[in-house]
Design a protein around this nucleic acid. Sequence first.
RNA 1: GGAGCCGUAGUUCAGCACGGUCAGAACGCCGGCCUGUCAAGCCGGAGGUCGCGGGUUCAAGUCCCGUCGGCUCCGCCA
Length: 597
Amino acid sequence: MLKRNKYCGHISEEDLEKEVVLNGWVHRVRNHGGVIFLDLRDREGVVQCVVEEKENPEIFELADSLRSEYVVALKGRVRRRPPGTENPKLKTGDYEVVIQELEILNTCETLPFPVDEETHLSEETKLRYRYLDLRRQSMKENLLFRHRAYQITRRVFLEEGFVEVETPFLTKSTPEGARDFLVPSRLHPGKFYALPQSPQLFKQILMVAGFDRYFQIVKCLRDEDLRADRQPEFTQIDFEMSFVDEEDVMSFSEKLIATLFRELLGVELKTPFERLSYREAMERYGSDKPDRRFGLELIELTDIFKNTQFKVFRQAVESGGVVKAINFKGSNLSRKEIDQLTQFVQSIGAKGLAWIKVEDGKLNSPILKFFSDEETQALLQRVKAQSGDVVFFSADKKEMVYKILGNLRLHIGKEYNLIDSSRFDVLWVVDFPLLEWDEEEKRFVALHHPFTSPKAEDVHLLTKALETEHLEDRKSLVHSVRARAYDLVINGYEVGGGSIRIHRKELQELVFRLLEIPEVEAKEKFGFLLEAFKYGAPPHGGLAFGFDRLIAIMRGLDSIRDVIAFPKTQKGICPLTGAPDFVEPRQLKELHIKLVE
RNA sequence: GGAGCCGUAGUUCAGCACGGUCAGAACGCCGGCCUGUCAAGCCGGAGGUCGCGGGUUCAAGUCCCGUCGGCUCCGCCA
């Protein structure tokens, strides 16, 4: 076999008049009768190869039998293309390889879809024939980009003295958080391993072990429903540091992210990144991961309507809720467009969508008749209403208003192309609440995870909350406790999150008491961590980046599937392998598993 | 668990609102011609369970119900 000494995509001036051996796939063949052009492709690119019938009839005949995606090896002389026939679209477009020897290493059946074009393909087709999909340029570039990102990431961690350690995949199920993937134990009937949702506990134990600075690029697994930015298995850049506070973790993170953007995209991010409090993010954008590349901010109106006659608003305010609005300025939306937006908010759980349209100084609205003149005037002034504006309202419990208007804002931003996709909006969201009330479980749950440290100045509120009998009072005390947590948000996606952890037993026990995790259970579920903390746990904290999301955002892609070599469909299926699938009864028996029905 | 969009040739799609020459296009594939193309060109050809099941109707890609699959979103995702 002729063995490659050059990649097709690397043919350049220095190869002129030299002999090269290429290995690759037939990208395209153009037969002109007496001359055949063959575009040969490998990982690095494409080069045109040529054979003329009168010069080399045997090779010409062989080349005539070539079809798309045949695998070939060829030897040839590189020459400059005749003037006027250069192809500026190709990196190697000034040159061509005159074929002297040609070996067909393998044939290829008729393709299910063209590899050489960027035809839109259904997700199912892409994934079923992923090996062909990955031959396509954009997908190939996505993976090569990702590859470079791994290398830069490792280098930056190395420069900063981090140690790479692997943590177990067969581990213990822990309460709180996402649903675990379980692995039945053959050696221990009835017992199960859990696949890790993240290396969280292990990396903290590594800090106790004195490794000081740890990192890992690691798969995490969560058995939850999928989204464009969520796969059941995904990759995190995970790290943890000892003897640090949030400033250390954040500034290292900034170095890593800024380096990736600089070296991969040539984009210089301004450091330190901007910071926004959780509260401000929610109040202005209705989201803890705001996309600030467009306006349409939420406007507070509760005070204006606190005594209103309009029942919908008044009831919301009386029961502790809020009234907020967004003003889609100069949009001149038609009734039909407003109806479509109404349908959208209804699909996410709103009862309806109140609106006012400003037209030539006149107001058009189904709810205006319920407002007093003062309310209308105050409202118009607050939202800075001008002709052409359409104002949308939401009045409900705070969380609901944020959800409705936050999503509506985003929906409008996308639907009406308000987003400047040429820039990156990078920010930290900080000052998260430590705990939030879970209405379903009737208890407090950790917003990040139960090991997140509260701010020192807020700890006394936790103590006080424990002593408070009345639930509403207790809620308001607990909700005012801020966590030493931080999320990195880029273009409206949470690409990373972390915190300074609790490293002292007493504080951890206090948090467990508030989470209503009984001592017995805490001991049973993560007693190993609590025990480790007894033996000299250093103060520590860390962060994990969602690697797939980060790469997708940097590549300007909407779905992380496009940066994962072999992703799953929305139902968690792998069309390439057919996983998940049934297994042999014998396998089940070994695992002591009996299927119901 | 819920909402929306989609499913027609190997691929991407049109046809569906108004049921009746609607089995169509492009690309791909096969055959032929062609010495400078590069999404080569020209001529010819093959290729379909309209996702699946049921219903309405004289008649169903087209309307209705169910179901399966793909995508987006809500719930869920510390």
